[in-house]
C-alpha cells in the first residue's frame, strides 16, 4: 500500500451526492499529499463490513454506519435511536459538542478509527402503499413496515407503533407492489433511487431517524499526520460534509414536491405523539441500559 494512498469504500453509488462530496474532499487533501482511491456501490467491501476492514488495515477510509459502530460499542446505540436528532443541524451540533467528543474518543480507543464527522443523507420517513392516513403511532398498528434486518432495526419499527417486517432491500419494490409489505422507511432520495414511489400512495413525513454515516479515517493514517496536517484534513472533511448536507436538504425539499406531482399524499403527522411514543419505548428497552448517564438529556437540550 503506497503511503498517502487512501482506499475508501462506501455503499452509495458513484452518482450519489456523497460521491461528489468525496471528490471535493479528495481535491482538498491532495495538498497534504493524499490520494483518495474510492470504491462505490459496496463493490469492494459489502455494506456493514467496512468497519472491520478499517480495523484490520485493509481500508484507510470509510463511511461507517453508526449501527455498525454500536455493534462493537453498545454505548453508541444511543445515536441510532428514534427521534434523537431533530434534523441535520441538530446532528451537526451534537457531534461538534463534548458529547460528540466523547463518542469519537470511544471509537478511537476501541476501534482505532478517527471520526471526521457525520455525513447526513436524509431523514427516514414512513412510505406506505395503503391510503390510510397516519397521524399517530396508533394508526400504524398492524401495518407491515419493512425495516432492515436485525433486532436494532426491528425495534426501531416497533418504536413507531408498526409491525416491523424484515426484507432484503432489493425485494422491497416487489414487496410493496404485491402487498407482501405495506410500507418501507427510507430517506426520500432512496425512495426515488429505488422507485419505491411508483408503488406507494403516500409519504408520512415522520422524520423518525436522521440518516447519517460517519466519515472516518484509520488512526494509523491520522496519527501519522502533524497537527497542522490534521487540521487541514479535518477542515477539508468539514467543508465537503457541509456541502453534501446542504445538497441533501435541497434534494429532500425537491423530492417532496416531486412525489406530490406524482400523485402521492405527502404530509407531516403528529410528530410530538411519535416522539413521545418512541423515546418511551427506547428508555424502557435493554438498549438504553448501555447509554451513558445523562447523554440523552444533554442531546435533547441542545
Amino acid at each position: 500500500q503506497a503511503p498517502g494512498n487512501l482506499r475508501f469504500s462506501a455503499v452509495f453509488s458513484e452518482q450519489d451526492i456523497r460521491a461528489e462530496m468525496m471528490r471535493q474532499f479528495s481535491e482538498s487533501v491532495k495538498a497534504q499529499g493524499f490520494t483518495l482511491q474510492p470504491y462505490y456501490g459496496g463493490t469492494l467491501f459489502k455494506q456493514g463490513t467496512e468497519l472491520v476492514a478499517m480495523q484490520r488495515g485493509n481500508l484507510e477510509m470509510g463511511n461507517i454506519a453508526p449501527q455498525d459502530i454500536s455493534n462493537q460499542i453498545p454505548e453508541w446505540s444511543i445515536v441510532t435511536s428514534a427521534y434523537l436528532f431533530r434534523d441535520a443541524d441538530h446532528l451537526k451540533k451534537v457531534f461538534a459538542s463534548d458529547v460528540g467528543q466523547q463518542l469519537k474518543k470511544m471509537a478511537s480507543d476501541k476501534l482505532g478509527i478517527h471520526i471526521l464527522g457525520p455525513t447526513y443523507f436524509g431523514a427516514r420517513h414512513v412510505g406506505l402503499k395503503p391510503k390510510k392516513k397516519i397521524n399517530t403511532p396508533e394508526d400504524l398498528a398492524g401495518i407491515k413496515l419493512r425495516m432492515p434486518g436485525g433486532d436494532a432495526w426491528q425495534f426501531l419499527g416497533q418504536s413507531l407503533g408498526a409491525n416491523p417486517t424484515p426484507m432484503a432491500y432489493a425485494e422491497v419494490y416487489t414487496g410493496l407492489q404485491t402487498g407482501a409489505i405495506d410500507g418501507q422507511d427510507n430517506p426520500l432520495p432512496n425512495v426515488q433511487n429505488m422507485k419505491f414511489y411508483e408503488v406507494m400512495s403516500q409519504v408520512a413525513l415522520t422524520s423518525h431517524l436522521v440518516g447519517f454515516d460517519l466519515l472516518a479515517v484509520s488512526n494509523k493514517v491520522w496519527n501519522a499526520m502533524t497537527p497542522e496536517k490534521q487540521a487541514a484534513f479535518q477542515a477539508a472533511a468539514d467543508k465537503a460534509i457541509e456541502w453534501s448536507t446542504q445538497e441533501h436538504l435541497k434534494k429532500e425539499a425537491e423530492l417532496a414536491s416531486f412525489f406530490k406531482e406524482k400523485g402521492l399524499d405527502v404530509y407531516t403527522p403528529d410528530l410530538k405523539a411519535f416522539r413521545e411514543f418512541a423515546q418511551k419505548k427506547y428508555l424502557a428497552s435493554d438498549l438504553a441500559k448501555s447509554w451513558q448517564q445523562g447523554m440523552l438529556e444533554k442531546i435533547n437540550a441542545m
Partner: peptide
C-alpha cells in the same frame, strides 16, 4: 408467520 399469523419474524432469514 408473516402471512398466516401476521407476525413477521427475522431470525429465520438469519
Amino acid at each position: 408467520f408473516r402471512y398466516v399469523l401476521g407476525l413477521p419474524i427475522g431470525w429465520t432469514h438469519e
